[in-house]
């Protein structure tokens, strides 16, 4: 549980720290207009909605962090028991990792091109990123196939079980991401030729980029865990 505790302590420290900063040095009982601080971005509903979606994604990533941290905690606690025998990680995982890194890089490139208002590049990079993600997922399935062919089933050994479980949970998260990716791709098609082409998809591109980076980090942590144990 130490892993989870440290991570959660970190998250809690951020939340509590932020809240304390918001709540000290105010005198709630004083009545005044006190609306100045709201005037900045609250007059623009579009901006507000965009910020909300981003914060929503942030909250969701916090939940996902908690989920993966707990899985990892469970792994490390289970690992210490007598019957643990480490898994021989299939080599294909290295290639898969590379694909996922590439996907993330392309998302970043797409995101950067949004800033430069280059619609064609945004579209290309975005599509390439998704395709690499598909390749990653297919690679993961191949890893499963290799493992089960070599006789490592889910139920013979806890390390196997954790491997299947983690890759499945991570893959499902990516799969959810790909669903959004598909929807955004349709948006691209719609936006094509319209005036602020980039603006229509900018938000989705940004959200996808954040989400993919997060899942890349999660995968790197999981992969390191598989390799070192």
């Amino acid at each position: 549980m130490t892993v989870t505790l440290i991570l959660l302590a970190g998250m809690m420290a951020v939340i509590v720290g932020w809240l304390i900063r918001q709540t000290t040095n105010v005198s709630p009982w004083v009545a005044d207009t006190g609306v100045q601080e709201y005037d900045n971005n609250r007059n623009n509903p579009d901006q507000l909605q965009a910020d909300s979606v981003k914060i929503g994604l942030g909250v969701f990533l916090a939940v996902a962090t908690s989920l993966f941290a707990l899985f990892i905690s469970a792994y490390m606690m289970r690992m210490e028991l007598a019957d643990w025998s480490p898994l021989n990680d299939p080599d294909i995982l290295w290639f898969n990792t590379a694909f996922l890194v590439v996907a993330s890089v392309y998302f970043q490139l797409a995101h950067n091109s949004v800033k430069r208002l280059d619609a064609n590049k945004v579209r290309t990079y975005f599509l390439v990123a998704g395709i690499f993600t598909f390749i990653f997922l297919i690679g993961q399935l191949e890893a499963w196939r290799q493992l089960s062919e070599a006789g490592y089933y889910l139920s013979n050994n806890p390390a196997n079980a954790f491997f299947y479980l983690f890759t499945a949970v991570h893959g499902l998260h990516l799969f959810g991401g790909l669903w959004v990716w598909c929807k955004t791709t349709l948006k691209f098609a719609e936006a094509k030729g319209k005036a602020p082409e980039v603006a229509i998809v900018a938000r989705s591109v940004e959200l996808c980029t954040i989400y993919w980076h997060f899942l890349l980090v999660v995968w790197l942590v999981l992969f390191a865990l598989f390799i070192y144990t």
């Binding site: 918001q22 709540t23 006190g34 005037d39 909300s52 929503g56």
Partner: peptide, 18 residues
């Protein structure tokens, strides 16, 4: 997700956290 983001983002003018 809704409850948290609504409290953070949708408060009306003057409704500070405190």
């Amino acid at each position: 997700l809704n409850y948290v983001v609504t409290v953070l983002q949708a408060r009306t003018r003057g409704m500070s956290l405190m």
